[in-house]
Design a protein around this nucleic acid. Structure first.
Lengths: 147, 147
DNA sequence: TCTTGCCTTGACGCCGACGTAAAGGCTTAC
DNA sequence: GTAAGCCTTTACGTCGGCGTCAAGGCAAGA
């Protein structure tokens, strides 16, 4: 199987496969004319990588799984190093979810507070408008960044 | 107040302030010698930006808050555009937390399954090892990427 | 023979929020 | 006078995971 077919079967692109190869994952044999040649085992390797990528694993984190499969294991995640990556990822996910939950609570509180303030601000009168007045808008923003 | 002092008081760097200026946030006056000059209102603008950045807001998302403050509002988040950003961010956070929760569950399940498989794999005998054998390691990985 | 459609390598582009270096000007202290 | 410590602009580097273009080689069908 050549690179285009493998990419199509894995739902990715040839660029991605060459990139993986450049990173030392997913090595390919070569045919006489220099074309990359893959087999079903490579497809399984690739699927393992893609699955982990979909979970948000970095490429380097997929290496133990790939090594595990290449060592002849039927599954890439039964090796100790792979299990360690799983556990580390779970801890990272828990930490991240916790932080995001805290942020969510904070933002929610800020929104509630701001809504009250906005409601209390309007009835008084239309003193300060939220849209910038022309002289305050045109000046500073027009400078720089022609790029 | 010059740029160094403002940066220090806001707990950031001069590079960051110049970057904000280049993006059209936080415009600065200039002294006779060309130095940037800031006042307490600029500090409040900067603090608003930094707070939102800490929450994970992108710079562009802070613009309504900055505009709101510059329009003369005592708080940057009472303007409709700011409230809209808050609400959109809450929705994004909820979606992200949900996705991460799903991923966490998936990875947790994979880990549990892999642990069982690993336990069932070992007692049979040390057939496939997780460490790659030398001939399988040296070849493919040594090529390319001298960069 | 020519076109089509694969394949090859090499190399630059992208995104966001800056870090960091280079080269030079201003001010104050000694 | 000169050294220190601010400040100025310009511009390249970072990180991850590729996208995209360029220039050319190989194989097969009309």
């Amino acid at each position: 199987m050549r690179i285009g077919e493998l990419a199509a079967r894995a739902g990715t692109t040839t660029r991605t496969l060459r990139y993986y190869e450049s990173r030392g994952l997913l090595a390919a044999r070569r045919t006489d004319n220099g074309y990359r040649s893959y087999d079903e085992a490579d497809l399984r390797l690739l699927q393992q990588i893609r699955t982990l990528q979909d979970f948000g694993f970095e490429l380097e984190e997929t290496r133990p799984f790939v090594d595990c499969l290449r060592a002849g294991h039927p599954a890439g995640d039964t090796c100790p190093a792979s299990l360690a990556v799983y556990r580390r990822k779970l801890a990272e996910l828990d930490a991240l979810i916790g932080e995001l939950g805290a942020v969510r609570a904070q933002v929610g509180a800020e929104l509630a507070r701001a809504e009250v303030m906005a409601a209390a601000e309007i009835p008084g009168g239309p003193e300060p408008r939220c849209e910038l007045s022309p002289e305050a808008t045109g000046g500073p923003r027009s400078e720089g960044m022609t790029r």
